[in-house]
Amino acid sequence: MGPTTAVVQATAAAKTTAHAEGQQHPIRLYLLVWGWLFVLSTCSYLVDYFNLQGYPRWFLILLLMIVKAGLIVGVFMHMAWERLALVYAILVPPVAVLVFVGIMVFESSYTHFTRLIFFHGGP
């Protein structure tokens, strides 16, 4: 059972109890997420331990990062049970950061290029 399916099942079970008073979910759900966070963190550590390089490294690091972030925000921070008006208000603005990343990747490649030319005599 993958981390997402297990959590989806557990959240579906928890959904019935949510909003009775505040956020009430079975403790088992939190222990499950806790366990998965341990497993996923171990995986990211092993990526470094076994010294993977290049695209596999990037793919795994970013994938594990996103899954862990999703589990924390979705279950621990209860975002999975909030209304969409709040979910979008909080989760959509950070998308602008990705645009910023694009701009700065472009900018730093250019800076790198000019530094190679002026300090090291060519790319």
Binding site: V97, V101, M104, E107, S108, S109, T111, H112, L116, F119
Partner: peptide
Amino acid sequence: DTFIFSCFLLSYMTVRMSTT
């Protein structure tokens, strides 16, 4: 706060990618 940390990580990315 997300934006603050994003800016830190972005500046880190920028200096790391642009240094020779």
